[in-house]
């Protein structure tokens, strides 16, 4: 399939990229790894007049240690996330989730920031970003601003980004020593999650000190299972199965999956 015609622009700094977005107007789009945007263009579900390629902005790649948190550049590829030792040590959940994303080809091009900006409710990285209290650092014509994940994901394929803004970094607090697991149910390896559950658990003295649980593809955006999280604080590991029932109260298939997969994700996270 062939996309409609567009202009291709290649900025060399973030500020230049923002300027281009402002100049090109609402019909311009940022292209990162292109793994979600290119299919949309080829199917002519969207026809932006200009693409601003942020792939050359090296300032947006890589993971940095920032004291209590990590700063993950928006253009860091899935492949890099999988192999980064800071992520492995302080945000293991992100690595485990990313391991399940697509296939090696896609993981070499697709980016962490692109996944979050695309905000596909079946996308795997939204729920862990929400559960881990990630903060989006955004550049726009008015300068930089920070938006917590809980306010960033607005709805179905919708974020708090304005058309002339670019996600540059994602700040993720350190979860050093937490157990983590991503329990994903999909029909074939390259298919999207029907439902998936991202869980991170901190164990202290045999009981659960804190838990983070995010649900993928149960609504128009990621959902944080706050009831499950709070029910677990101070509880023994044996409390997981009962707490997992709080992941959803409905009667449908996805509600069932939310409960079953929450149980499994937490149990596996604890088992390390």
């Amino acid at each position: 399939m062939i996309p409609a015609e567009f202009r291709y622009l290649c900025p060399s700094t973030v500020d230049e990229a923002v300027r281009m977005l402002v100049e090109e107007g609402e019909d311009a789009k940022v292209i990162a790894g292109g793994q979600s945007l290119v299919p949309v263009l080829r199917m002519r579900l969207a026809a932006p007049t200009a693409l601003i390629d942020i792939g050359g902005l090296t300032e947006l790649t890589g993971v940095r240690d920032d004291g209590d948190s990590l700063l993950i550049g928006a253009m860091t590829t899935h492949y890099e996330v999988q192999r980064d030792h800071l992520i492995h040590d302080h945000a293991l959940l992100l690595k485990l989730v990313t391991d399940t994303v697509a296939d090696p080809q896609v993981r070499h091009r697709g980016t962490f920031g692109g996944s979050l900006c695309h905000a596909d409710p079946a996308g795997d990285l939204l729920a862990p970003a929400l559960a881990l209290d990630a903060v989006m650092i955004i550049a726009g014509p008015g300068g930089r601003r920070e938006v917590p994940a809980s306010e960033f994901f607005v709805g179905y394929f919708e974020t708090a980004l304005a058309p002339d803004e670019i996600l540059i970094d994602v700040r993720v607090p350190k979860y050093t020593g937490w157990g983590a697991h991503y329990e994903k149910l999909n029909r074939v390896a390259q298919a999207w999650s029907i439902v998936a559950v991202a869980a991170a658990v901190q164990i202290s003295g045999g009981t659960i000190a804190a838990a983070r649980v995010g649900l993928t593809n149960v609504g128009s955006g990621p959902v944080r299972a706050v009831d499950v999280e709070s029910a677990l604080v101070g509880q023994p590991v044996s409390a997981i199965s009962d707490a997992a029932l709080l992941a959803s109260s409905g009667d449908g298939y996805k509600d069932n999956l939310a409960r079953v997969l929450t149980d499994r994700a937490l149990t596996a996270a604890v088992a390390g």
């Binding site: 949309v40 579900l45 593809n217």
Partner: peptide, 13 residues
């Protein structure tokens, strides 16, 4: 529907 999740809640169940 389309592209896994573009036209719908996505995720083939």
């Amino acid at each position: 529907g389309g592209l896994g999740s573009i036209d719908s809640q996505g995720g083939q169940s």
